[in-house]
């Protein structure tokens, strides 16, 4: 059945059952690559998107629960031509190895900075505690978020 979604500012329609996890609608119907399947259990954070500004595990969020809420994905933050300060900061800090966790890291960081524009390092670490990284890029990721927080103030 047709389900209507608000994603990155546009209204989109997908043909899927209401119990379909948002993740698959984003990836397979709307061809948005950023949110990743990591566990399907809300444990790793790789699938994180913002739903009405709240960081949400799209792997375990059925379309029926999204309704007409505003969904923002990593693609909605910026593009390679016009990067969001967080995306720019992750590149500046070369914050990643394989990069599979980065969608979740950036989206969780976005939610954190929206609430707390000048977090301390400890607050960044706590804010990203639910997002797993397997390559050991954690310290670079923390530096990138702190860098973005500084940049934010100047934009």
């Amino acid at each position: 059945m047709a389900v209507s979604l608000k994603v990155n500012g546009a209204t989109r329609s997908v043909n899927a059952e209401p119990d379909t996890p948002l993740l698959y609608a984003l990836r397979n119907d709307l061809e948005l690559n950023a949110a990743k399947f990591g566990c399907g259990l809300s444990q790793c954070g790789a699938c994180t998107v913002l739903v009405d500004g709240v960081p949400t595990r799209s792997c375990a969020t059925p379309l029926s629960r999204v309704g007409q809420s505003e969904v923002i994905t990593l693609e909605g933050l910026g593009t390679t031509a016009k990067l969001h300060p967080l995306q720019q900061a992750f590149i500046d800090e070369q914050a990643g190895q394989c990069g599979y966790c980065l969608n979740g890291m950036i989206m969780a960081a976005k939610a954190l900075l929206d609430k707390n524009p000048r977090p301390t390092e400890a607050q960044v670490r706590d804010g990203l505690a639910g997002n797993l990284c397997r390559c050991g890029s954690h310290n670079r990721i923390v530096r990138a978020v702190l860098r973005a927080a500084q940049t934010n103030g100047r934009i």
Binding site: G78, L83, G99
Partner: peptide, 13 residues
Amino acid sequence: LAAKVTGGAAFVQ
């Protein structure tokens, strides 16, 4: 890295 922080096609996934 640029593709990986913007949702570009980066993985076989």
